[in-house]
Design a binder for these strands. Structure first.
Length: 690
RNA sequence: GCCGGUGUGUCGGAAUUGGCAGACGAGACGGACUCAAAAUCCGUUGUCCGCAAGGACGUGUGGGUUCGAGUCCCACCACCGGCACCA
């Protein structure tokens, strides 16, 4: 995989200030840094300049974004998180001349309409022009000090909105291409080198960050967009005005709206040949090097003569040495394994050395599902035929914590694999369910918090069926679930009740033959008919809840209801044994996915010698769901006042008449005028009376 | 700050399309069984008024649409999650 990306120019090595976790002793991708802390061990990450391997995921930014539109099977939450992470923004990139220098300064802005409001420029401290333009000015020393200091400030504190912005004048000036004004060039911590061009035009009147900086360093603030009640004098502003309005102080563009201004000024910039409309993404390339032992080796050899040489395909895979020693330095032990490290150059044959960094484990998890489709393929990672048959995955289940890690990396991989013709789907996972976590005392179970519940203990005490039943019953799958001992107890009791109930009636039904033709159930006494209705209503509800809805908790509650109904039926004087048997069998069968062990036992107990798991899922009989009579609610002006039991499909007029004839309704409406009557067939009737 | 999501009894949660809110489970209370306890079984359990029949109120708050709103619309509050100096 790595070589494929490499061949297509999507893998590159570059020196950059990267995220370094001092505790894990490795670098991390942007996605693995949460609030400035390491995703794994929560240590504060540092910045370190290192030469590292990257995957060019940014080349796929637009497609990763666009295709989210066609993924109805994914939760919006996850799609929005990916959208934000990719962070597309449209704007205009253009060049400015620097007074007294040949170099030009390139900036990116989403607000070209505010170009007449530029009162200073800002470069990131790491910007390559910083040294050149400050050289020989009175500011040179101050600039050097500032740049030096910034190199040691962590990204977290630098990019925090809380910390005060800091900057220093470079001594140089740029020329505003629209009005030839001289604009001082500053450097400041609030501009980031790795976004856009690392340089901005500052418009303090219409950008809050620029506004704060300008106020702090007494830089001028010029209003160029007039909102409804905003002052025209920048000195009177209390905060930047970022809303819509009419352009002012902008020469021949005065009077235009923000939208018109954006278009016309970027058109002018393009015409002048100094810039064009561009799109920027917040998404950065994926840093995949790791200084860990565990991980796929990066198949690269460094040769003094040939440089970077990929390991040839016939020498793959590169195996990790197993005879290794972990040193307390926590450096990757691969650096000390000569047999691994030392090798020869595949091109010239001279002694060379291997890359000792390994790949981020997310690389491997980005395509394992394709490998799963053809696990036995030995010469290829997977065969085209197998992936085309199985992929994409119909239903994927995982935690939300992977929303912008695994789930985006995998999408990137699949798109690339499609591009190089290794598979033919656009997306890896058609439907996604983000399941919740199991919590104890309101927190994620973890050893360090000491709030774990050991599965062995639960299984020992209640059995695996109870544990499974509780987990599925306590909350819908996408929600977090609080582990509750009493709830577990409740599920255990439920299974015990069923066991007892089936035990007591097994003798009654064990030899009963169920009629093959459902028509045989026609003549039933009311109690039996009710039970049969419940049986089939339960089949329907449980089937519907499992299919697509994944509503396991409600499915289980319906089975509990059926069990309660059967239990009540057993008190009847006359039992209809086929109906009873059908109900009991159905209950056991529906319970099978949730409590496989006990349901198999019960299945055997009522006389079956085959395995329940092999039985087909029960089908409901629509005829059993047809009721003769139905209870309707009778409302007066939206409030339920009475009920009546009437035949189903009673015509509207009759329902109205019956409702009005009820003594209670007569009583309550006798002094009132009936305005109108609404009948919802077989549900309720609402009499509007004044 | 921006963008999402959620808000229902004592608790976990139902209510799938605007149609009887609180299914199912837990907890609590009362009763049966027991010398007693546990387990089990039966009953009650949204709040308030009432001996009762019944009534009033009730899905975060305030308003709106509708014969009818937990569900739709507007504003606000609280909590959770994501992003956060991205120009």
């Amino acid at each position: 995989m790595f070589l494929k990306f490499y061949e297509h120019g999507l893998t590159y090595k570059k020196e950059a200030a990267v995220n370094w976790c001092p505790s894990c002793h490795t670098v991390l991708a942007n996605e693995q840094v949460v609030d400035g802390h390491c995703e794994r061990c929560e240590t504060m990450v540092e910045k370190k300049k290192l030469s590292q391997w990257f995957f060019k995921i940014t080349d796929y930014a637009q497609r990763l974004l666009d295709d989210l539109e066609n993924m109805p099977g994914w939760p919006d939450k996850v799609k929005i998180m990916q959208q934000n992470w990719i962070g597309r923004s449209e704007g205009c990139q253009f060049e400015l001349k620097i007074e007294g220098h040949d170099e030009v300064l390139t900036v990116f802005t989403t607000r070209p309409d505010t170009i007449f409001g530029v009162t200073y420029m800002v470069l990131a401290p790491e910007h390559p022009l910083v040294e050149t333009i400050s050289q020989g000015t009175a500011q040179e020393k101050a600039v050097q000090d500032f740049v030096h200091r910034m190199a040691f400030v962590s990204d977290v504190s630098r990019t925090s909105t809380e910390t005060k912005k800091e900057g220093v004048f470079t001594g140089a000036y740029a020329i505003n291409p629209m009005n030839d004004e001289r604009i001082p060039i500053w450097i400041a911590d609030y501009v980031l080198m790795d976004y856009g061009t690392g340089a901005i035009m500052a418009v303090p009147a219409h950008d809050q960050r620029d506004f704060e900086f300008a106020r702090q360093y007494q830089l001028p603030i010029r209003v160029v967009i007039k909102g409804e009640d905003t002052p025209e004098d920048g000195e009177l502003l209390t905060e930047a005005y970022e809303g819509d309005g009419v352009m002012i102080n902008s020469g021949r563009y005065n009077g235009l709206s923000v939208e018109e201004g954006k278009q016309q000024i970027s058109a002018a910039i393009k015409q002048m040949g100094i810039g064009e409309n561009t799109v920027n993404y917040r998404l950065r390339d994926w840093l995949i090097s790791r200084q860990r032992y565990w991980g796929a080796p990066i198949p690269i050899i460094y040769c003094d003569d040939c440089g970077i040489v990929p390991v040839p395909y016939d020498k793959l895979p590169v195996h990790l040495p197993e005879d290794i020693e972990f040193k307390p330095s926590r450096e990757s032990p691969l650096n000390y394994v000569k047999e691994f490290y030392e090798t020869s150059c595949p091109q010239c044959g001279k002694p060379a050395h291997r890359e000792t960094d390994t790949m981020d484990t997310f690389v491997c998890s980005s395509w394992y599902f394709a490998r799963y489709c053809s696990p036995h393929s030995s010469d290829l990672p997977f065969t085209r035929e197998a992936v085309d048959y199985w992929m994409p995955v119909d239903q994927y289940i995982g935690g939300v914590e992977h929303a912008i890690l695994h789930l985006m990396y995998s999408r990137f991989f699949v798109k690339f694999l499609k591009d190089i013709n290794m598979l033919s789907c656009d997306e890896p996972f058609t439907n996604l369910l983000t399941q919740g976590m199991v919590l104890k005392d309101g927190a994620k179970m973890s050893k360090s918090k000491g709030n774990t519940v050991s599965p062995e203990e639960i299984i020992e005490r209640y059995g695996a069926d109870t544990a499974r039943l509780f987990i599925l019953f306590a909350a819908p799958p996408e929600r977090d679930l609080e582990w509750n001992e009493q709830g577990v107890e409740g599920c255990f009791r439920f299974l015990n009740r069923i066991w007892k109930m089936v035990s007591t009636c097994a003798d009654l039904i064990v030899d009963v033959e169920l009629p093959a033709d459902p028509g045989a159930y026609k003549e039933l006494d009311p109690a039996a008919k009710k039970l049969r209705f419940k049986t089939h209503a339960t089949i329907k509800k449980v089937s519907e809840d499992l299919e697509g809805r994944f509503s396991f908790n409600t499915a289980i509650s319906f089975i509990m209801e059926l069990s309660n109904t059967i239990n009540a039926y057993l008190n009847e004087k006359e039992l209809d044994l086929p109906v009873l048997k059908e109900a009991v069998e159905t209950m056991i069968t529906l319970l099978n996915p949730f409590a496989p062990h006990i349901s198999e036992e019960l299945w055997a107990m009522i006389g079956h010698s085959d395995i329940l798991y092999h039985q087909p899922w029960p089908q409901w009989d629509e005829n059993a769901l047809v009721q003769d009579e139905i209870e309707m609610a009778v409302q007066i002006s939206g409030k339920v006042r009475d009920h009546m039991t009437i035949p189903v499909n009673t015509p509207k007029e009759e329902v109205e008449a019956l409702a009005l004839a009820l003594p209670r309704i007569q009583e309550l409406t006798k002094d009132k005028k009936i305005v109108k009557i609404i009948v919802v067939p077989d549900k309720l009737v609402n009499i509007v009376a004044k």
